[in-house]
Simulated assay, not measured.
Amino acid sequence: MKLGVFTVLFAEKSFDDMLNYVASSGLEAIELGTGGYPGDAHCKVDELLLDEDQIKRFKEKIEEHGLSISALSCHANPLHPQSNIAKPADELFQKTVQLAAKLGVPVVNTFSGCPGDHENARYPNWPVSPWPHDFQEILKWQWEHKLIPYWKEKNDFAEAHNVKIGLELHGGFSVHTPATLLRLRKECGTAIGANLDPSHMWWQGIDPIEAIKILGNENAIHHFHAKDTIIDQTNMNRNGLTDMTDYSNMRERAWYFRTVGFGHDSKTWADMISALRLMDYDYVVSIEHEDGLMSIEEGFNKAVQTLKPVMVKDSVKEMWWV
């Protein structure tokens, strides 16, 4: 397995400075944003697609630093009911898949999207209750008329480019749990899998280790994020897990993100790494930092310090003791 980082952390650094910083930290992989919510500070998809020589130089520079690209990421909402939001997200996804194919990057990460509740809706609708039955009708319409048709087409598009789709299981989007991911995968194809981020499992009450087993048994983990979460039980008792308190108001929130090791201890992270290996995941663990209590550099460095000792670098090829 390799330790990497989602380089949106370092959007203020130049491409060269970012590569130097990541390599000097002893990491082996980078995940690059191509637009959407992550931005495109280090990977201009339109420029690269138009220039094969630039693609070659781009790859060479990364390789010169001893790094590889684990994934290209274009998180957005391609199913947003407003076409001026959905269309650019869809176009960005397709361009990102094309660029991944040219770069030899095996995974494109994004969100499943979340539609509205009818054709003339203006905003997404994320049902989280089975009753009253209106919500079931919304959910049925979203999956049958929006999610499945869209992702069937994208699954085939990704397969044609020899690229896998890593959907991040994230609240506010239609695919947000192992069950919803496996449903979409069953309906649309096996190019679709998870970009599994344990931070979003914890706040939903899901044990990430069990999520790894559930998805791993279906060979449905395409990429893995390393980010932590802490639950403030007093605020959870008041606000519940679907807390709408602004992320910046951490004192009042039921849960908030922490850097790796500050929500759960290193033994928990070691157990997750072991579960990934048990499920034959032997790819990149990509650090994502959204800790409101630490600077980017401090949070990143503490995540590296926590993860390096528990990473499994060499897979067992034969059990010599059996």
Rank of each mutant, 00 (worst) to 15 (best):
W255K: 01
W255D: 05
W255G: 01
W255S: 03
W255L: 03
W255E: 06
W255C: 02
Y256C: 10
Y256A: 03
F257I: 05
F257P: 11
F257H: 10
F257C: 08
R258K: 11
T259S: 14
T259Q: 04
T259Y: 06
T259W: 09
T259K: 08
T259P: 07
V260T: 00
G261F: 09
G261T: 01
F262A: 02
F262Q: 03
G263K: 00
G263S: 03
G263M: 07
G263C: 08
G263R: 05
G263Q: 01
H264V: 08
H264N: 10
D265Y: 00
D265N: 03
D265W: 03
K267E: 14
K267A: 12
K267W: 07
T268W: 15
T268H: 15
T268N: 15
T268L: 14
W269L: 08
W269D: 05
W269V: 00
W269Y: 05
A270Q: 15
A270F: 06
D271A: 08
D271W: 07
D271N: 09
M272K: 02
M272G: 01
M272N: 00
I273A: 12
I273S: 14
S274T: 13
S274D: 14
S274Y: 07
S274C: 12
S274R: 10
S274N: 08
S274H: 08
A275Y: 09
A275D: 11
L276D: 04
L276E: 00
L276W: 03
L276M: 05
R277N: 15
R277G: 14
L278E: 15
M279K: 07
M279F: 02
M279G: 10
M279E: 15
D280Q: 04
D280P: 00
D280S: 09
Y281R: 06
Y281C: 02
Y281N: 02
Y281I: 05
D282T: 07
D282P: 03
D282V: 01
Y283S: 13
Y283F: 12
Y283R: 09
Y283N: 10
V284H: 02
V284K: 07
V285S: 02
V285I: 14
S286Q: 09
S286E: 09
S286H: 07
S286C: 01
S286T: 11
I287S: 00
I287W: 01
I287F: 05
I287V: 00
I287Q: 05
I287K: 10
H289P: 12
H289D: 04
H289F: 08
E290P: 13
E290A: 13
D291Y: 06
D291I: 06
D291E: 03
G292T: 06
G292E: 10
L293V: 12
S295V: 05
I296W: 11
I296F: 15
I296Y: 15
E297K: 13
E298N: 10
E298V: 11
E298C: 00
G299P: 10
N301F: 09
N301W: 13
